[in-house]
Design a protein around this nucleic acid. Structure first.
Lengths: 238, 238
DNA sequence: CAGTGGTCTAGACCACTGT
DNA sequence: CAGTGGTCTAGACCACTGC
């Protein structure tokens, strides 16, 4: 507790500590603002400012007349930030997905650099198939730091559901909070053309993604490839 | 002004109105909190709450001891995310641009809808050429509401510089603050293939952009088309 | 130095929830 | 009804800026 920090920040950090230690739990109410005000010996305005910052960070939520609660981490909102492919009607497409393989390997240079993998630390590579109405839609290669995800090798990856990010969070405590994507257009190699069932001179879209945690630490490096003629990508810039 | 809304929201909306109308401009200070408090006849706490929301929305920024300022939209940065070619050193290359024509026309359906052009109000259409080292790089069609941009028809559009958004701001007081882009891949029609000097079976990237002001009011509808093999698009998601 | 935003207090009244 | 968060006020003092 750094006494140089403003009061409301110290209160905010202390509240967050109670949550992190599991003393105040998801969907349960915090003590009332009046109680916090008395026990921290600060005014209610300062308590409100501290709680407000945590509400903004989506760690707490308020319900007027009932109380202030610890938020249960919601996968849904964060997930749909990362799906930018639309169908013809502008609706977000969430295809069915299946993990095809899971192996330990030395990452290629781009993946190793993106994940800041040093020396002899390896990576876990998943190959993944995304389908849309029985068609192979996208082929994905995913690299994860072996250091943090090693137990994946003992799991039945074929049983994984459509969404990997909730899975990362549930089993490894890794929350994807931001990502950088780079799009390019290329011609497929023979294997990819066969997988997508397109001619070798039909262009494919190449999406490279580096996904990071709240602190900006890299979690996942992913390359997704799909046929260009069905591709539609929308983004809001501000 | 809805009197049922909380005071701080009405103040926030009114401040935003001044910015949207260009009365309070980027990088210039707002009136002081004391002045706002007196003129809106609310307490400084309420003013601070209103200003805080706009700071969080990244529309204002504060500098202690100096004042509160209108943030200059970081939109120019995002411009260079598009159609950028990296040279050997990985540096961004900025294309030269030239406006080819400027006419009054009835907008096509998509442009009219995006710009909310009603009835007999027309649009001004610019055709624009973006070049990179003597090559035609991108062809752009741009629609603007005739109602707000009519004097463009009397201007020497060939003399316009590389960047249109600063020009909109300087001559029409229209500040582009956000945009939505949709990317697709298509085959070029004959005219576009000739312009880009590519074969008719070479895919092109199609970027549709709706650019809006602070208040979310549409300012510009733009379609940019360029050859896919040189395309590289990077975006940060959070 | 005067003027700005940054923090903090100690109240007030209102709107909503559950009993 | 009592208890919760939501809004709002009118001050106080501090930290920083520019002159």
């Amino acid at each position: 507790m750094d006494a140089r920090l403003p009061l409301y920040q110290r209160v905010r950090d202390d509240i967050l500590g109670h949550i992190a230690r599991g003393e105040w739990r998801p969907d349960q109410p915090l003590p009332t603002e009046a109680w916090l005000s008395e026990n921290y010996e600060v005014s209610m305005g300062t308590i409100r400012k501290a709680v407000n910052t945590l509400v903004q960070e989506q760690i707490l939520y308020r319900m007027q007349g009932r109380g202030t609660f610890v938020r249960r981490p919601q996968f849904r909102d964060s997930l749909f930030r990362f799906f930018r492919q639309l169908d013809q009607d502008g609706e977000t497409v969430v295809p069915d997905s299946r993990v095809l393989s899971c192996v330990l390997e030395t990452p290629p240079a781009a993946a190793g650099k993106a994940l800041a993998i040093e020396g002899q630390d390896g990576s876990i590579r998943l190959d993944r198939q995304r389908m849309l109405q029985e068609d192979n839609w996208v082929h994905e290669q995913i690299w994860l730091p072996a250091e943090r995800f090693s137990s994946l090798l003992q799991m039945d990856v074929a049983a994984l559901g459509n969404l990997l990010y909730p899975f990362y969070e549930q089993y490894f405590g890794e929350v994807v909070a931001s990502a950088r994507e780079t799009l390019t257009i290329q011609l497929p190699d023979a294997a990819l053309a066969a997988f997508l069932e397109v001619a070798a001179d039909q262009p494919v879209v190449n999406i490279e993604r580096v996904a990071c945690s709240y602190g900006g630490r890299p979690i996942e490096y992913r390359i997704s490839r799909g046929r260009a003629d069905r591709f539609r990508y929308q983004i809001d810039i501000s």
